[in-house]
Amino acid sequence: MEAFIANFNYWIYIILMMIGLFAMIAKKNLIKKLVGMSIFQTAIILFYVSIGVKQGATIPILPEEAVHPKTTAGETSHHNGEDGDAHAGELPEIDAQDYTNPIPHVLMLTAIVVGVGTLGLALAIAQRVHYHYGTLEETEILKQIQSGQ
């Protein structure tokens, strides 16, 4: 039970992916097939983002103190700005365990945009199919194609 709760993201990822695959194969309506494709894509993105999650980690953005250390007086601040390298040793330690892994996030940003691109193209083709055959049901389209020949 403990392992089931700990890997709950992955169980839901598999369930969502199979729901999407089932819809793409078994649903006869073209729009329903595309809804299934959208669910399938987001399930794969869920898997990738789940890989990068760490226990007790925060968002992968550094706080300002970690990049620009606080200075007490205006004089030292001015001095610090001129030769920042000399004061690099004063920066606080940044531990990678405190931040989630941003590499899967960056990969999945592309995947989201590509997913919307494929969805838009497929919906445009579905509109052309409806314009030509007057229906979105796969069985009726196949019937019309077979009777036409």
Binding site: V49, L109, I112, L119
Partner: peptide, 19 residues
């Protein structure tokens, strides 16, 4: 909630909005 804020922004605008 999974601290992937950049993916969350993109999903809210592109995934939920545009699609």
């Amino acid at each position: 909630e999974m601290s992937a804020v950049d993916v969350a922004f993109t999903e809210a605008t592109v995934g939920a909005g545009v699609s």
